[in-house]
Design a protein around this nucleic acid. Structure first.
Lengths: 332, 332
DNA sequence: GTTAGCACTCGGTAGAATCGAGTGCCAGGA
DNA sequence: TCCTGGCACTCGATTCTACCGAGTGCTAAC
């Protein structure tokens, strides 16, 4: 553990580096109000902090930069979560006051909001589809031998699957199958669909089971993910290769979901640099928070920025948005 | 118009510049087989080409670079559309052989395919929702005073809207309204919904018209757009500001749709640099093609790359993918 | 009309000089 | 024992110079 003065010095270095992106020297730190200490003393302390892995020098005769460990200590012990800037707070409030419409658009807009507020890339993961209760199932013919299974979930999500039929089926038959599946499935979840009772008609039963299995398979990968403001990563780094790597990751939805999930699973709200395993994101930090709908954990939102991101602000923004998003969705 | 030799020189400059991204000098051009001419002659010709606006020199004593006008002449007169590289052709074939599932995922995957094949960013615009025939409409209750209108279109698209009800409505009433709307709307399009006949029940009629208006409004902006491989733009440019501008554009879906639409409307299949009005894309070119489903123009695909992109290959890829996508969607 | 020859331009690279922010260490003082 | 002023030292960044060479435009001869 760090004594008070070392902690204060570390905080000063991190804060200043976050602002300026330049290595921080002992003079700057010593100027910090509240630290009545000479640069020489600061230097000694910084040497210790470096030995202990909280800081590094890009090269001799340069100032210090925080390591991942340094950032970690900063977010864990030195940064008050703090309230969000009032103007931004208002921006969030206004957004949710005006927000309406169906859930996917809502979530996509939320990711853009979060990106605007924080000025980093933002991710919103929708509620897992398996958990929601099924409200209705319907079969609709699209072509002679193609039908669409449409399932409406209680959270407003609509799942659909195309069905390749082995033989033509008229509207009536599809409707009948739909009613049959619906009667069985309504109130259940996609995760536990159970086995529907036989209808006494082999052809119908075959279609029913086909529709059912189409609905429940491929479930995992279909969690909805929305990435907003990815272009902001181009501002955060000036190495074009770094940017490309990061954008590449953000394009792979299931990687992004996995990343957020993984961070949450480890009980963290912030993952810094190498803490999340993704190599291209080694210069990035993620701030995440779950949101709850009607008391149940429903999904996750997060912000992705450079490790030298403004953690207090990002954490505040993520907290506010996740809370308001949950409330908004709870109200329907 | 350019005489044969000037055209050949222009072609050589464009080809070489596309490959190397370096200004092309007279020696390189003269080495070109098929041009039995000395560097000095080439220099004279290049001076003329520069005077006429086809080439520029980044600075005195450098080679020449094509202007937008130069690229334009190249794609209009000098580049054979040419067949796609066999391996890539196969890649496209394999993709569509394996492809299945519902339409949005299909389109999103197609955008990734096109990005992979061309190594540029790719855009796929789905069929306009207004044009498709309605196959089914249904109302599903989500909360006491919230209902979801779900409309299934003939092309497999599902439109949904949340409805804020002024008073509670039971399942039976919602179902009745759904049947009423459905009976009226099936076979029509969202663009021409007509006016449903009165059901003789005021409360039902109110809900019907509410459902109807929710479906037809906000129509324009809901065309589905899928952008794939945006991260590849980071490879094409090394100015990080340029990259950011381009990514910013790609994040605004309706701008992208407008861009492609605009290019098509002007009867072009390629738009270069300033030809499309978007300032951040002044260093980019777009190659577009419509695709047809069952003989009808259904949507658009496109590729976005630097102006020094490989036009023949991009055009070939876009042509092949649009054609196969149309065929695939026609077959259902 | 084409080409060889030539003087000229100018971006890019390499090397030297300089600057200055920052360091580590030491010795003196509270 | 801990802090601090002083000092020599480091080394990236910046500036300047020299130089190279790819490329040009022009002219005169073929």
């Amino acid at each position: 553990m760090l004594d008070d003065r070392k902690a204060a010095i570390l905080r000063a270095v991190v804060s200043e580096y976050i602002e300026t992106a330049q290595p921080v020297g002992s003079q700057h730190v010593a100027r910090q109000p509240g630290l009545a200490v000479s640069p020489a003393t600061v230097r000694n302390e910084m040497a210790v902090l470096e030995r202990d892995g909280y800081l590094v020098q890009p090269h001799t005769s340069a100032g210090r930069i925080p390591t991942d460990k340094g950032y970690r200590f900063f977010v864990d012990h030195l940064s008050a979560p703090g309230p969000l800037d009032p103007a931004k707070r208002q921006q969030v409030r206004d957004f949710f006051k005006a927000a309406h419409g169906e859930i996917e658009r809502m979530l996509a807009d939320t990711s853009r909001l979060l990106a605007n507020v924080t000025d980093y890339a933002a991710v919103v993961v929708g509620p897992p589809h398996e958990a929601a209760h099924i409200r209705s199932v319907q079969l609709v013919g699209l072509a002679p031998k193609v039908a669409l299974v449409v399932a409406v979930l209680s959270n407003g999500v609509v799942e659909k699957r195309t069905l390749e039929l082995t033989e033509e089926a008229g509207e009536e038959r599809l409707a009948a199958v739909g009613r049959h599946v619906s009667a069985h499935l309504v109130g259940r979840t996609l995760a536990e669909p159970g086995t529907p009772p036989s209808s006494g008609d082999d052809a119908t039963d075959a279609l029913v089971s086909q529709a059912l299995s189409s609905l429940i398979e491929h479930e995992v990968e279909s969690d909805s993910v929305f990435v907003g403001g990815a272009s902001r990563m181009a501002r955060a780094f000036d190495a074009v290769d770094t940017v490309r790597g990061i954008l590449g990751i953000l394009e792979e939805q299931f990687v992004v979901v996995g990343l957020l999930q993984d961070v949450l699973d480890r009980g963290l709200s912030v993952a810094i640099g190498a803490e999340h395993g993704l190599e291209p994101l080694s210069e990035c930090a993620v701030v995440v928070a779950p949101y709850e709908v009607e008391g149940e954990r429903a999904g996750t939102i997060g912000v992705l920025g450079p490790t030298r991101m403004n953690y207090p602000e990002a954490m505040a923004a993520v907290a506010v948005v996740s809370q308001r998003l949950g409330r908004h969705l709870s109200e329907g």
